[in-house]
Design a protein around this nucleic acid. Structure first.
Lengths: 248, 248
DNA sequence: CGAAGACTTGATGCCGATCAACAGGGGTGG
DNA sequence: CCACCCCTGTTGATCGGCATCAAGTCTTCG
C-alpha cells in the first residue's frame, strides 16, 4: 500500500484520521512520469489541473521580457505544483523536471470537494500556504538585501535541507543536481559569478565539491555566511495547529 | 450596517451567500485603531491572533542581521495581516501602520471554525493565498532580474493600483505616502538611488511629483519601463472559481 | 571522435552603494 | 513665538560588487 505523498507531507504536521488519509489517497490515483528536462506546464498556457510531486525534483520559473529567467521555486516529493492554476486560467509560471519525475494530476474540483468533506484538510492547506509564503518572503529578503555569497550559501543550505527531508539522508554530502546557471537564475546572479562564489566558499573551507556532489565542510560558518534565519521549514517545533477544527 | 471588509474583498471574487456574509461579519466584531507609525506586531513576538485591515495602510517587513530592512508587503483595506500567525507561534515579520489605521483582531480558532462551517470560504481563502503568492513571485522576479528604474516604476504602479481599488479614485494622481527610504527598502535599493531613479522618471516625462503627491504623466511608458506583467491582481477577468464547493 | 554543454578564470566596465554636504519643513521645548 | 533639531529630500564624488566579454578546459553523449 502506497500512501499518498500529500498525506505523507500533511501527516508530518498533524496526525491525520483514516478518513482524511483515504480522501488524500483518492486524489493521487493517476500518475504521470516525466523525463529529465520535460515541461509539465508552460507559462501562459491553460492549466486545468494541479499536480502533486511523487518522485524526483522539479523547478518553476518565469521568463522576463528581456529573456532572463527567474527561478521561483524548487519542488520535491509531496509539494503541490500549480496551485495557482486554481484561480488563474493561465499558468503564471513554467514548471519543468530537473530529474526523472512522477507527478499525480489532481482535478481543480477535487480541492473544492476536499474542503467540503474535510474542513480540517482545507484549513491545513491554508496553513501549508502560509509556511510557503514565509519561505518566499525569506527569499525576497535575500534577493533584496544580501550579497552574492550569502545568496549562494543560502541556496545550498535550502536545497540540502529539503533533500534531507525527502530522502532521509543525514550526511553532509549530497547531489546538488543544479547547473551553475540554474543557481544563478534562482539567486539573481550570473553563472560566472556563481562560479566565483562557489570557489570562494570552497577556498574558505566551507564546502567541498566533486563533480556534482557537494559537501558541507564547515556548516556553522556556511550558515553564518548565508545569514540563514533558521526557520527550519517543516519541523513541527514552533508550529501550532491547535486552532484546526475537528477531523472527519 | 457596515459589511465586513473581508466580505467586501471576497465578494469581489464571487457572490457570497447571506450565511457566508454573516459569518465573515462576525469575525470583525472588535476594532482597534492605530496611529501612524504604531507597531501592530513585532518580529519574533508571540502572535496569538490575526487581523483584518479595516481602514488605512500598513506595511510588513523583516530586519536582517546586518540591520538592513526588507519591506515585504503593503497592506490595504480588506487584507489579512499575520496569517502566518496561524502556524508560527512567533511572528516572522513586523507590521506597522503607515497611516492612521483600524484593524479587526480575529482569533486563530475562528479560521478553524470558519472552514468547518463554510467550506467554500475556506477554499476561497486558499484561492486568495494563491493570488498573493503570485504577486510575491512577481516581486521576486523583479528583485532578482530587473534594473533599479524598473523596480521603482513597478512599485509606483503597484501602489497606485491598490489605492485605486481601495478608494475608488480613477485619476492619475495619488498620495504615495511612502518616504524614499521606504521605497528603497521595498525594492532593495538605497534611498539615495531611489531619489535618482524618481528624478530620472520625472525628467523622462513619465511621472510628475509635488510634495507627497504623485502623478502618472505617461503611464504607457511607465508600464513599459517597469516590465509590468499586467496581472491586474484583483480583477475577476482571467480568474476561475468554478471549482469551489457549494455555499452554505 | 566530434560537438555541445558545463565549468573555469582573467580583463574590463557599469550600475548602484557609499560618503558627504546642504536645503526645506514640521514638530517640540524653551 | 521662536530656535532648534530631526527627518526627508536632493545632488555631487568616489568606490566596489557583480555583469559582461572573452578564451580555454573538461565532461558527456551521440
Amino acid at each position: 500500500m502506497t500512501t499518498s505523498c500529500l498525506a505523507e507531507r500533511l501527516g508530518e504536521l498533524i496526525d491525520l484520521s483514516n478518513n482524511e488519509k483515504a480522501a488524500l489517497d483518492s486524489l493521487e490515483q493517476r500518475e504521470r512520469t516525466l523525463r529529465r528536462g520535460a515541461v509539465l506546464l508552460r507559462e501562459h498556457d491553460k492549466s486545468p489541473e494541479l499536480f502533486v510531486v511523487k518522485r524526483g525534483t522539479m523547478m518553476s520559473y518565469v521568463i522576463l521580457p528581456d529573456g532572463s529567467r527567474q527561478i521561483l521555486r524548487f519542488l520535491f516529493r509531496g509539494d503541490l505544483v500549480a496551485m495557482a492554476g486554481l484561480v488563474y486560467r493561465n499558468s503564471p509560471e513554467t514548471v519543468i523536471a530537473l530529474t526523472e519525475c512522477a507527478v499525480a494530476p489532481v482535478e481543480r474540483a477535487a480541492i473544492g470537494t476536499l474542503s467540503a468533506d474535510h474542513p480540517r484538510l482545507a484549513a491545513l492547506l491554508i496553513a501549508v500556504d502560509q509556511i510557503e509564503r514565509v519561505a518566499l518572503t525569506d527569499r525576497l529578503a535575500g534577493l533584496g538585501r544580501t550579497s552574492a555569497k550569502a545568496r549562494v550559501a543560502a541556496l545550498l543550505i535550502d536545497i540540502r535541507n529539503r533533500l534531507r527531508i525527502v530522502d532521509g539522508t543525514a550526511g553532509n554530502t549530497f547531489q546538488l543536481g543544479l547547473t551553475q546557471e540554474e543557481i544563478g537564475d534562482a539567486t539573481g546572479l550570473t553563472a560566472v559569478h556563481v562560479n566565483r562564489m562557489l570557489r570562494q566558499l570552497q577556498d574558505e573551507g566551507m564546502i567541498a565539491r566533486d563533480g556534482g556532489r557537494m559537501t558541507f565542510v564547515d556548516e556553522t560558518m556556511l550558515v553564518r555566511t548565508a545569514h540563514h534565519t533558521a526557520r527550519d521549514t517543516a519541523r513541527a517545533a514552533g508550529l501550532d495547529f491547535s486552532w484546526l477544527p475537528g477531523a472527519r
